[in-house]
Nucleic acid binder design. Structure first.
Lengths: 339, 339
DNA sequence: ATTGGCACTCAGGTAGTTAGAGTGCCAAGT
DNA sequence: ACTTGGCACTCTAACTACCTGAGTGCCAAT
């Protein structure tokens, strides 16, 4: 086991490095912190820590910088979650006021999070996996087009335009609509496919083509929910931290622009402590994020997690405050969705 | 007037500079182009061009770089719009295939444009100013909530959730819905406010609160359309061109993240030639875009312009191809919306 | 008007030097 | 068994000096 004092030294190194952005040496360390010992002793400690791969010297005569492993140990065992300042809490409450609309709520949330952390913030749209159908509507939107609207019990609304290639028959549309609702109301999205099997056979031969087009589109809607969506804010914060990314920020920008990558990342991450999950540097198995850390928390509706939100920043980020912010915003969002 | 040959020299300078990213000197100029004259003559020409503020020397013994004014003259009088390669045309056609949904069409368009140009692409959502109401739907989305859907003749669908604070009365809802449609179908959005005046008075006293809530939300919907929306793609392309932005890319990122700035910019720009409008460097009166150029074109539906799209990149961009791409994509989008 | 020639300028690269921060290790002290 | 002062050593970053080459402006000759 690593002795207590070594851990203290590690903590000090991480804190100083985050603050000063300079590799930290033994001398400045004893100056800034009250260890009861001399720099030589600290040097010995640092040699141990280096042995353990927790810190690393960029070159022979430079100070030490935490490794990914060092940061990991720091967040797991050494850091306390800062509580938010009252002005931050006020900002959160203000942001959340008055929006019934899911799109708007999530939009506000992501901007809030990016302002709070000064990092790139992301919010995943609620997964519909566990949702249920509340209502299905079919509305004529042009001569030969129908608008399909799917409302789920989590309040998510999904719409899609269907091209029927022939004039819309309003009577038929009404019939399809009510039959669909009778059949599917309350059903889980996962079960929709099964329930729809053979659905068009309850219609007259001549209508079946149209019915099939509609049910097919409905299935696509349900399926489209598996490939979820993420919204981002604060991309400019990345550029402002440019010097924190050796090389260039462009691989990071590319990674976060690629929804697929982000989604994969986010869904792989499982909550650790404080309901927050994080990946540090190369723990992200995506190359472009080798110098980035990701802090993520789930948010809930009706008691179960429906999606995630979080921030992305340089490995040298202030983990304490970012974890606090992500976790707080997730809680507030959960609360906001509760109404 | 500036003599013909001087203009030839300017064109050569712009072309070489765009290609090599190096200030271009008199000697390399005569090597790369067949002017029938010596480098000394070119030097004289260049002195004239510098007099006219069309080019500029970063320092005494360096080559010349075009100024904003120089680029402007180049695009206005010297550049020919490249026609797209057949592979580019193919890419456009492919991208446009099969999407009836406005959201999806615009999403594809913006990604297409960013791939085609290797710049940051933007697409503005259609302005509803000149649109007309096609259909209004009211759907119960929870016990005390109603989903208001507004469909316009440009195919745009807008939705909003209304909290009624009491149980939804389905019969009343149906009544409101049909009366609204009778009243507003075909009306221009601008006229909706006028038409709704006194609308709730045709309902029983007890219902008026709910009716008012709904009409109010409808008006907000219409109003919300004045503050338009822009979607972006290819932000990572900025970072890849980092060296083209003296200082840092972060002001540029900030500018394009700020929808308000972009919208102001876009709406101020009026079509010049080839239906394309551009702002070069400091012609953008926004400071953060001092080293950026913006290429914009309008796209149409039913014969009139409904919104704009374009790209943003460094002033040292390939104007010919970008203008060609923007203009082509705008035309294709217009065509796609025609269906 | 064009051109070859020439003196001049200046950024950027190379090389050498220095200062300072930091290290590892050892022998002595507690 | 730790701790510590001391010391030799290392390496980067910063500064200097120097040089090279690309490019210029100007002038006298064509």
């Amino acid at each position: 086991m690593i002795p207590e004092r070594s851990l203290e030294v590690l903590r000090a190194i991480v804190q100083d490095y985050i603050q000063t952005k300079e590799p930290v040496g033994s001398k400045s360390l004893v100056e800034r912190h009250q260890f009861g010992v001399s720099s030589a002793t600290i040097r010995n400690e640092m040699a141990m820590l280096e042995e353990e791969q927790l810190i690393h010297a960029p070159h022979t005569s430079a100070g030490r910088v935490p490794t990914d492993k060092g940061y990991r140990l720091f967040v797991d065992r050494l850091s306390e979650v800062k509580s938010l300042s009252s002005s931050e809490k006020a900002a959160i409450s203000n942001f959340m006021v008055g929006s019934a609309d899911l799109d708007e709520t999530l939009g506000r949330t992501v901007r809030l999070l990016s302002q709070l952390t000064n990092q790139v913030a992301m919010v995943q749209y609620p997964s519909l996996g566990r949702s249920k159908v509340r209502n299905i509507e079919l509305i004529q939107s042009a001569d030969s087009r129908v608008l399909l609207i799917l409302i789920t019990d989590s309040g998510r609304i999904q719409q899609h335009v269907i091209e029927l290639n022939e004039l819309v028959n309003l009577e038929l549309l009404g019939e399809i609509r009510s039959k669909l609702n009778v059949l599917l109301a309350g059903a889980s999205l996962a079960g929709v496919g099964e329930l729809l099997r053979g659905f068009e056979e309850s219609f007259a031969q001549t209508s079946r083509v149209q019915v099939a087009l509609i049910t097919q589109s409905l299935l696509e809607q349900v399926d489209a929910n598996r490939q979820e969506k993420i919204i981002l804010a604060g991309t400019a914060n990345l550029a402002r931290r440019e010097e924190d990314f050796p090389g260039s920020i462009s691989p990071v920008l590319e990674a976060i622009e690629e929804q697929v990558v982000l989604l994969k990342l986010i869904t792989e991450m499982q909550a650790e402590q404080h309901g927050v999950s994080l990946r540090i540097g190369r723990e992200n198995d995506f190359e472009g994020l080798a110098n980035a850390s990701v802090v993520v928390s789930g948010y809930e509706n009706q008691g179960s997690e429906i999606a995630k939100l979080g921030v992305i920043g340089p490995t040298r980020m202030d983990y304490s405050s970012n974890i606090a912010a992500v976790s707080a915003v997730a809680r507030y969002l959960t609360k906001a969705l509760g109404n």
